[in-house]
């Protein structure tokens, strides 16, 4: 398992948050997603064998949000 932390640009509409939350959660291998509206951050736990930090970053980019920074940490 690994944890990805993505720093996005400023989020302004609460519905953006729901969109990102659902889109990332729907990816294979993603178990827990937290979108922090005010900090503009996304934290997601995922299985490296099924997806990667880059994949998650692409999903968010495709929704139309800028990903400024991606950090991946192995957790177990």
């Amino acid at each position: 398992m690994a944890k990805a932390i993505l720093q996005l640009g400023d989020l302004t509409c609460p519905s953006c948050m729901t969109k990102i939350q659902k889109a990332v959660a729907n990816q294979k291998g993603v178990s827990d997603v937290k979108v922090m509206f005010n900090a503009g951050k996304v934290r997601a736990d995922f299985d490296q064998e099924q997806t990667s930090g880059e994949d998650l970053s692409n999903v968010i980019t495709e929704l139309g949000y800028e990903v400024k920074k991606l950090k991946v940490k192995e957790t177990a």
Partner: peptide, 16 residues
Amino acid sequence: ALHAWGALVNKVISIE
């Protein structure tokens, strides 16, 4: 409209 559509796809009825 794009915002509205994006939300609707995720089953959210937005102000947009």
